[in-house]
Design a binder for these strands. Structure first.
Lengths: 229, 229
DNA sequence: GTGTGTTCTTGTCATAGCGACAAGAACCTG
DNA sequence: CAGGTTCTTGTCGCTATGACAAGAACACAC
């Protein structure tokens, strides 16, 4: 019994996953998602949190959600091992420190992983793929989007999350209208963000409201207000 | 490592779950969901299918979907056991036969389980509860609804699924319009169903179309067209 | 300062979706 | 045939939303 953890975060408007370079056999030197063996005295959630901290120094405690179990014979060359996979979405990974069993830890664009530019150990490619798919769905149904951004955020930042995860372009005006629709999804803070290097009108800063508990305001299914060109 | 299976089906317009009465310790004589130990040479999916067939005689092969793993210490009094839970929605359970390890097998209304009128062994109440919640979500996003009904079905039957699972009343006219919306969710067969004992106009029979793959037509979140009185 | 470019914000318009409701159609039983 | 039940069709009005245009607030170059 092992647990493995997929940590997702936004960086440079792209989705990234936290990987560690394996320090031990099997697959020594190859990239993998953090994880390790569960102890009999702890719950699965506790095991996930502990392994993540041990190998990367990241504490994603309350955000870890379980999303799958993998137990194909042969997925681990050593023995028959079933792993339970966890997912956490964070706005800032914080200090990444390679710990036990890990020679190195860093953020990698998920695009590079899915394109196989970065090869993963075990069946971790499949696990990461399932995690992404899960986030795509959760984005529509839950408030996961706010977990990607900070305490205070601009609507452009929030929109970038949807665009990166779904791989679409959204109309800024319509996005604003849907989110601000006075149902309490976002609450203006009164402050404004610093404009980017190219200038532009400074964006208002918002914080997350409580309406996300009932599902998000942005949908992708029958909606097609992606930008044309 | 064990696998446990939650089988859900509709009976008398109510949601039912397939339970077995345990033939062995621990919890001998108590109701539980079917399940058992995974073998090293098989996948989790195969283990679920095998255990279900062994204990109940039910073959739900292609419909089994994994939805959670449970590994709290103490959930099994004998030892530390992690179980992977599977869910299947079927229109007809078929022949139920109590098999190995099971003294009895039958369908129980989920209401009785959630109300604790029927007590379950281990943490199976929690597992069943999670399964129900999963179905409630899937009903909105996937074509699970069609798995509850037969090959050919009336729109009233399909509507009853949503009403039973969500615990709401839906307007028959609006339900029809949403489902028939010529997007291929249901396809008329040209045949008609037998009216019930109280008479009434005979309903048209439909079969499931391919549009369900892109998500269902019925939503519950911002929608509130439940019947008033 | 002034002009140009960029980004965020506000507003308009037309259409599609949908909740509420009423009426008609097709069966039953007695 | 009368009355009851269930399924089916249709209408009305409101809201949500996709498309698009215009205004506002900044940076930078000159």
């Amino acid at each position: 019994m092992t647990v493995d953890i997929v940590i997702l975060t936004m960086s440079e408007s792209r989705l990234h996953v936290l990987l560690v370079r394996r320090g031990e056999e099997p697959f020594q030197g190859m990239w993998a998602i953090p994880g390790g063996f569960k102890r009999p005295v702890e719950t699965l959630d506790e095991a996930a949190r502990r392994e993540l901290a041990e190998e990367t120094g990241v504490d994603a405690a309350s955000l870890l959600t379980q999303f799958g179990a993998y137990g194909d014979p042969g997925r681990d060359p050593r023995m028959s091992v079933v792993t339970v996979a966890y997912l956490a979405v964070v706005r800032d990974v914080g200090e990444i420190v390679a710990g036990t069993d890990a020679a190195e830890a860093s953020l990698v664009p998920v695009g590079d992983v899915l394109d196989r530019k970065v090869e993963l150990a075990f069946d971790h490619l499949r696990i990461v793929g399932d995690a992404i798919e899960r986030v795509r769905v959760e984005l529509e149904v839950t408030g996961v989007a706010t977990a990607f951004v900070g305490e205070a955020f601009t609507l452009a930042e929030l929109r970038a999350v949807y665009e990166a995860v779904w791989g679409v372009q959204l109309d800024a005006a319509n996005f604003r209208r849907s989110v601000v629709a006075d149902d309490g999804w976002v609450i203006p803070t009164g402050r404004r963000a610093q404009p980017g290097p190219a200038g532009g009108r400074p964006a208002e800063l918002y914080r997350a409201g409580r309406a996300w508990e009932r599902g998000g305001p942005i949908h992708r299914l029958p909606r097609t207000w992606e930008v044309k060109s």
